[in-house]
Design a protein around this nucleic acid. Structure first.
Length: 717
DNA sequence: CTTAGGG
DNA sequence: CCCTAAG
C-alpha cells in the first residue's frame, strides 16, 4: 500500500530546502490555506475543512473574499513557520498558532451546542429499528458566498444559545428532534451570489422548513415524572437548519443576516415557536482576525449576558423542565458565561454530576451494526471517482489551468440514530446521562467525515475536488457530508446492568459535548484559531512534503496516513478530558498518529556512524546537521535513538537482530566509537567534577586561611 | 531548543 | 518512535 503510494507520488517536486530541520510538527501541520495556495485541494482536504469549520472557502485569489484576507494569509504563513520552528528549526517567528483558536472554538462550540440538544431528545420505542442503527450522520450543505465569518458567527450563536440550556431552540432544535435517521441530504450548491441575499434566503428557508415539517411537540419532559419517554415522531423530513436563526445579540453582524430578536423570543416556547423572530443585524467589516478576536471576546463577555436575559428568560421554562434538577439548570446557567476553556470542564462535570440516583443504566450500542448499516454506509468500497489518478503534477496543472473554487457551507450535520437501553425504573436523569454517555462514547471514539457524491462515498482522500467531480459548475447537487463513527472504535456502555427496554432514539447526535474531543474538532479544523490555550490540532493536515535523502522517503504516505488519522481519532477517556487541561499539547498531539516508522537504511546508518565517529555522542544536533540535514524526517532525537539501538544491536548476537541487517563492520565501528566517546565523556565529567572540587578546596583553604587570620585579629581585638 | 534517558 | 525532565 505504502509502497504503491510512494510509487505514485514519489517525492519529486517536494524538495523543501527552506527549513532544513523542520520535523514532525511541520509535517503534521500544514495550514489549510497554505495548501489551498498550492491549488491542490483534495477530497481529503475537503473533508478536513468540512469537519473542522463546516465551511470551506476557497478563493481564486488569495484575498478575494472577506474570508481570506491578506491578514489571514499571513497568519497562515506564520503559522507554518512556527510549526517548523517547533521542530527545531530556529526560525524566529513564534506567534500565531494561538491566534487560530478562536475559530476552532466556534466550531467546538457549535458541536457542543448540538450536544446539548440531546437533553431534549425523545425516544421512540421501536426495537425493530435496532438493526438499522447507524451512527452516520448526514449533513446539509449549502454553498454560498457567505464568508466564513458568517458561518462562524452562526456557529457561535448556536453555541451560545445552546449554552443557555435547552434553548427555545426554535429552529435548531427542531431538526434534531425530527427523524434524523435517514438518508443523506443533498447539498445545495450555488456559486457566487450576493451574500445578504443568500443568507436571507437560507434563513427563511430553514425557519419555514422547520415550521412546516416539524411541529416539534416539545419533547421536553416536564419535571421528571414517569412519562419517561415522549415521542416526538413526526418530522421525518430532512431539513436544512442552519445556525442562522440564533444570531441574536452578536456584536459581529452581517448585512442581511437576520437574527432572532429577543423580544420575539419571549413568545417562543420550545421549538414550536417559529415566528418571524428575526432582526437584521449590522455587518461587521469582516477584516481579518482582529475582528474576530474582538468578536470573540465581546461575545462571551458582553453578549452572553445579554443572551442570558433575553434568550434565557424566554427559555427559562424550558430550562426548568428540561433539566429536572435544578442543579443542572444552574450549572448550565453558570456555564454560559465562562470562557470556552473553562466551560469545557464544566460541561463535563455537569454530565458526570447530573442527577445521581440511578438504579441501573446501560447503553447498548452496536457499533458493528451501525457501521455496517446501510444508511451510513461507512464502509462502502465505492470511490467517488474511478479511473486513473493523475500525478500530483498533473493535478496541479489542471488546477492551474482551471482556477475555480468551490465554496461550501454546511448548515448542520444530521444526527444518526442511537440506541439506548435503560430500565424503566431509571430516572430521567439517568436517561439523560445514559444518552449523553452513549453519545460521548461515540464522540470519544472519534468521528470522521464522509463525503458523498451522488450517493457514492468518495473515499480517496487524495483526489482533488475537481477530479472527484466537485466543482463549481459540476454535479454539485449531489454532494453530501456525513459524520461517521470511527470504525476502529468500540463503543461500549459505561454502565453495566443491562436492562430490558430498548429505545431506539432519533437522537441528534450531539456533536461534541466534549470539546475535548479535540481530535474531532480540531483535527478537522482548518480554521486558524487564535485562542491561545487550545492546542492546535490541525495536524491532520500534515502533509510532509519533506524530501528524504533516500527513495525510502515516504513523505507522501503521510497524507494517506493522515487521512486515516483524521478518521482514527483515538478516544480520549472522558475522565481524561475532564482532567486534562485543554492546553496539554502533548496529550493532544498524541491523538495524532504517531509518525510512520522509517527504518534506517544501511546507508543512513553508515552516515550516522561516520558522523558520530567524528562528532561524538553528545552532539546530536550537529550530527543531524552534518549527516542528515536534508532528511527532514530524521530528527536529532531520531538519530540519537538510532545510535542507541545501534549500540544495542552491536552488542547482541546476530541471531537476535532484526530488520535489515547492518553490516558487521558498521556495528563494530559503532562499538568502537561508542566506547571511545563514552570514555571521552567520562573524562570530561571527571574533569568537571574535579574542577569544582579544586575550586572548593581552594575556596575552603582561602576561607580557612582568612578566618584564621580574621580569628587571629579578633582574638587580638 | 537540545540532550539524555526511560518507555 | 514517543515523551519528558533538565539544562
Amino acid at each position: 500500500m505504502e509502497l504503491q503510494k510512494r510509487l505514485n507520488y514519489g517525492f519529486n517536486g517536494y524538495q523543501i530546502p527552506a527549513t532544513p530541520r523542520a520535523t514532525r510538527s511541520a509535517r503534521k501541520r500544514v495550514p489549510f490555506k497554505k495548501r489551498v495556495e498550492d491549488n491542490r485541494i483534495s477530497a481529503f482536504d475537503l473533508l478536513a475543512t468540512v469537519a473542522g469549520k463546516l465551511l470551506l472557502d476557497k478563493e481564486s485569489t488569495p484575498v478575494s473574499s472577506n474570508t481570506s484576507s491578506a491578514e489571514d494569509q499571513s497568519k497562515v504563513e506564520k503559522n507554518t513557520v512556527k510549526e517548523e520552528r517547533r521542530d527545531g528549526n530556529q526560525s524566529s517567528k513564534l506567534e500565531t498558532w494561538d491566534q487560530y483558536s478562536n475559530d476552532r472554538e466556534f466550531i467546538v462550540s457549535q458541536l457542543v451546542s448540538q450536544t446539548n440538544d440531546l437533553r431534549s431528545c425523545s425516544f421512540r420505542e421501536s426495537p425493530s429499528l435496532k438493526n438499522d442503527t447507524h451512527f452516520g450522520l448526514t449533513s446539509v450543505v449549502t454553498t454560498s458566498d457567505c464568508s466564513e465569518r458568517s458561518g462562524v458567527l452562526k456557529l457561535m450563536n448556536g453555541k451560545i444559545k445552546n449554552e443557555t440550556g435547552c434553548l427555545p431552540c426554535k429552529v435548531e432544535t427542531g431538526p434534531f428532534l425530527c427523524g434524523a435517521s435517514g438518508g443523506h441530504i443533498k447539498l445545495e450548491f450555488e456559486n457566487e451570489g450576493p451574500i445578504h441575499e443568500e443568507l436571507d434566503r437560507t434563513d427563511k428557508l430553514s425557519i419555514r422548513e422547520v415550521a412546516d415539517t416539524c411541529p416539534l411537540e416539545d419533547p421536553v419532559v416536564v419535571d421528571g415524572k414517569p412519562p419517561l419517554l415522549v415521542s416526538s415522531d413526526s418530522c421525518g423530513k430532512t431539513h436544512s437548519y442552519g445556525f442562522n436563526n440564533h444570531l441574536s445579540s452578536f456584536p459581529a453582524k452581517r448585512d442581511g443576516l437576520k437574527v432572532v430578536s429577543r423580544d420575539d423570543d419571549e413568545k417562543s416556547s420550545g421549538c414550536t415557536y417559529l415566528g418571524p423572530i428575526k432582526k437584521p443585524f449590522r455587518p461587521t467589516p469582516l477584516i481579518g482576525d482582529q475582528r474576530i478576536r474582538r468578536t470573540m471576546t465581546s461575545k462571551y463577555l458582553k453578549v452572553a449576558p445579554r443572551l442570558n436575559d433575553a434568550t434565557l428568560s424566554n427559555s427559562d421554562e424550558n430550562l426548568k423542565s428540561a433539566y429536572c434538577d435544578r442543579s443542572a439548570y444552574k450549572r448550565i446557567r453558570s456555564e454560559r458565561n465562562y470562557p470556552f476553556k473553562k466551560r469545557k470542564f464544566l460541561h463535563y462535570s455537569s454530565v458526570s454530576n447530573s442527577d445521581g440516583g440511578i438504579s441501573s443504566e446501560g447503553i447498548s450500542d452496536s457499533p458493528e451494526q451501525s457501521i455496517n448499516g446501510n444508511a451510513s454506509g461507512v464502509y462502502p468500497k465505492i470511490c467517488g471517482v474511478t479511473g486513473e489518478s493523475p500525478s500530483p503534477a498533473d493535478q496541479r496543472k489542471s488546477f492551474h489551468s482551471r482556477d475555480s473554487h468551490v465554496k461550501f457551507r454546511i448548515k448542520s450535520f444530521r444526527v444518526p440514530e442511537l440506541f439506548i437501553e435503560i430500565p424503566e425504573s431509571a430516572t430521567i436523569g439517568s436517561l439523560k446521562r445514559t444518552v449523553m454517555e452513549a453519545v460521548t462514547a461515540i464522540l470519544g471514539g472519534g468521528l470522521r467525515i464522509g463525503v458523498l457524491l451522488q450517493g457514492k462515498k468518495v473515499r480517496d482522500d487524495n483526489k482533488t475536488l475537481l477530479q472527484t467531480g466537485i466543482s463549481r459548475d459540476n454535479q454539485m447537487d449531489a454532494l453530501g457530508f456525513s459524520l461517521e463513527p470511527n470504525p476502529s472504535q468500540t463503543f461500549q456502555s459505561h454502565c453495566p446492568g443491562g436492562s430490558p427496554l430498548t429505545f431506539p432514539c432519533d437522537t441528534p447526535l450531539p456533536l461534541a459535548r466534549y470539546p475535548a474531543t479535540p481530535g474531532l474538532v480540531t483535527r478537522v479544523t482548518h480554521v486558524p484559531s487564535r485562542e491561545p490555550h487550545i492546542p492546535n490540532l490541525g495536524h491532520f493536515v500534515e502533509s510532509d512534503h519533506d524530501s528524504a535523502p533516500s527513495p525510502t522517503d515516504m513523505s507522501l504516505d503521510k497524507s494517506a496516513t493522515d487521512s486515516k488519522a483524521l478518521v482514527a481519532v483515538p478516544a480520549m477517556s472522558v475522565e481524561a478530558l475532564d482532567v486534562v487541561p485543554a492546553h496539554r499539547k502533548s496529550k493532544r498531539s498524541e491523538v495524532v498518529q504517531r509518525r510512520i516508522r522509517r527504518p534506517f537504511s544501511v546507508a543512513e546508518v553508515e552516515a550516522l556512524v561516520q558522523a558520530v565517529e567524528k562528532l561524538g555522542t553528545g552532539r546530536w544536533r550537529d550530527v543531524k546537521l552534518r549527516a542528515f540535514d536534508n532528511a527532514k524526517h530524521r530528527t536529532y532525537v531520531d538519530l540519537k535513538d538510532k545510535w542507541k539501538t545501534l549500540v544495542h544491536t552491536a552488542r547482541i548476537s546476530p541471531q537476535q537482530r532484526r530488520g535489515e541487517p547492518v553490516p558487521q563492520e558498521l556495528l563494530d565501528r559503532v562499538l568502537t566509537a561508542h566506547a571511545y566517546w563514552s570514555q571521552q565523556q567520562a573524562k570530561q565529567q571527571l574533569k568537571q567534577q574535579q574542577q569544582p572540587e579544586s575550586c572548593l578546596l581552594l575556596y575552603n583553604s582561602t576561607v580557612r586561611a582568612r578566618s584564621r587570620s580574621d580569628g587571629g585579629e579578633k582574638d587580638f581585638g
